[in-house]
Design a protein around this nucleic acid. Structure first.
Lengths: 340, 340
DNA sequence: ATAATAATTGCATTCGAAGTCATTTTTATG
DNA sequence: CATAAAAATGACTTCGAATGCAATTATTAT
């Protein structure tokens, strides 16, 4: 129990009267050890409080059992759930999460240094700041990478994404079926891939119905930004009958701004849709019509794709899309009678 | 760049025409190396793409630079923020977070095994499932531990806590100054320490004003649970004029239930207070009167306490309380005229 | 120029577990 | 009971960086 003396396999070997190899073998599954020595070793190990040192094991095995998870610190709001679920799926695969947060793109270089130094088995990235160049670097070091809700143009890295296009198509179909004709898109930050994907999804879906030029305003995914940018927009422009928000937080902000400062009703005067299916979206005051991401399946898929890549490095990069699930709340109604 | 050949210090040494020791010294700060060899080594290292192997370094240094963070998966809602901030403060101290989530108490044993195996430098625990026995085990392995928003009865482990008593006193003072006399406490899950601390804080604060027996109902910290337990309570009991909720999510649930199903107004008919200061608490539909935890300072304190403990193991356990900050929203009004 | 001192450098060892290989013990078979 | 086959065991080496120590080189003072 002394400060400096960790109990090692040698100590146990000595106490049990066997060799260090024997001790090691007891702790490796599927290796032949006689019951007699196994018992002796287990006994000695328990007496001394021996725990195999994973660090030493890593060194010889060349595998750390650690997966780096990179998240943007100002990420989308449903990230806690995503992180918790990723962690759970990773734990099931008998690996651990080494966590990295990224405030801005500048830190990526430093984080990558760390990741290389720690010799992680693989990387799951939930961050906007991830360039094709980063991919090359990870590839050079033979570290498998899976992107979450982010795909590279050339699909050179495995990705697991929510099908934003399909989700927005469902939302916009609903709006159109309610006779809406005047839309406003409230997009997320310009440097976010998810935001861009959703913006494109919205545009394409509108285009499919013949609406060619819809106005876009940009928030930063937050409630406050939604209120501010909608307020600024409303001061100089006629209001739409439907607002398509890139996430639920902004949709909720928009609803509050409409009700409190624009003096209108949701959904009677203006319909609002969001994206994500965060828990607040179904609170009584909002009852948002939105699309929820199948987080459970997506995180599971991300982990499984990564593990597969770790075990079979030759597997080519794969992009997996998961459909969102439409949640019909009470934030969409028939477009008010048009006066033009 | 071959699969099996990682670039090691020996490779660099060979390429630079120096010894492995020299290479090692270049990457250790504060060791004397001549500019000439340093340049040669740096050049060779860059050519080969050498990155020092942290695992090997850990083995000899007996320090992994990793801090285990244990969180309950069904934790309080402000945990993402706490986790992100903890991670940031830990990164500043040049350490990394190894993440563990706990679904229930049964998993603690397994998680502890992992923590010991990975030889982390310290542990920050944000979880209910942490018994005095666990403390003993960590102590036996000389692993410093800091609890976050949890204190042991005997204060044998360092803790950083929000001062729940003080926070609830402020909230209840406000309610009392608005002439409220009929209270209902909506507590969190019985197995949560934070919930228990807040319940006690509320009881004591009420006691200080002479209110001896206030009814308590129990939710599980979630919006839905608040609605359910309030609804059940309202069916058989007269309603209070003020509800003291153990967290903001439940307070919001209570408000929605009061407005939607009990047909009453907040704050005119019933006042509601929460605790935490989550972002939704200041949304227009709720404008909750609540107490926010000084997350920034608390996480910083937790990390600093831990680092101090790592560097000076003889430092005795310390409990640090941080005062919450009162946020006066619009969910408290004067008690309606009493008819009894 | 020479001695005295300081700064570099390389050799060899260490950290702790795992695996190879040769040797010994056990078990099965004729 | 002898022998072949199988199982168990220990000595030794490996993983990759860090460091004490001794040897070497560079610097400074005289």
């Amino acid at each position: 129990m002394n400060k400096k003396t960790r109990v090692t396999s040698y100590d146990v070997a000595h106490a049990a009267g066997v060799s260090q190899s024997a001790v090691s073998r007891v702790y490796r599954p599927g290796v032949s050890v006689s019951k007699k020595t196994r018992d002796k070793v287990i006994k000695a190990a328990e007496d001394l409080g021996y725990k195999p040192n994973a660090i030493a094991r890593m060194l010889i095995n060349r595998s750390t059992g650690m997966v780096a998870v990179i998240i943007s610190s100002r990420a989308n709001v449903n990230f806690p759930e995503v992180l918790a679920q990723l962690n759970k799926h990773i734990a099931v695969k008998n690996k651990r999460v080494l966590l990295f947060t990224l405030d801005d793109a500048d830190q990526l270089e430093m984080v990558m240094e760390q990741i290389f130094a720690y010799q992680v088995d693989g990387v799951i990235a939930l961050t906007a700041h991830f360039e094709p160049d980063s991919v090359t670097q990870f590839a050079k070091h033979n570290i498998p990478v899976v992107l979450y809700n982010r795909e590279l143009p050339d699909h050179s890295v495995s990705s697991v994404c929510c099908n934003h296009d399909q989700g927005l198509r469902m939302l916009i179909d609903i709006l159109v079926s309610h006779h809406h004709q005047h839309f406003l898109i409230m997009a997320g930050p310009k440097d976010s891939d998810v935001a861009r994907a959703r913006l494109n999804g919205a545009r394409n879906a509108l285009l499919a119905h013949g609406f060619t030029d819809t106005t876009v305003i940009y928030g930063d995914y937050s409630y406050d930004s939604a209120r501010e940018c909608l307020s600024a927009y409303a001061q100089k422009n006629p209001l739409p009958t439907a607002i398509i928000c890139s996430n639920d937080s902004m949709a909720i902000g928009a609803i509050d701004e409409i009700r409190q400062n624009l003096g209108l009703r949701v959904p009677e005067d203006i319909s609002v849709v969001g994206f994500d299916g965060i828990s607040a979206s179904c609170w009584h005051s909002y009852q948002l019509t939105t699309v929820s991401q199948p987080t459970y399946f997506m995180t599971k898929a991300a982990v499984e794709t990564l593990i597969n890549l770790i075990e079979n490095p030759e597997v080519p990069p794969e992009t997996r899309y998961w459909p969102g699930k439409l949640i019909e709340g009470n934030s969409v109604a028939a477009a008010p009678r048009d006066d033009d």
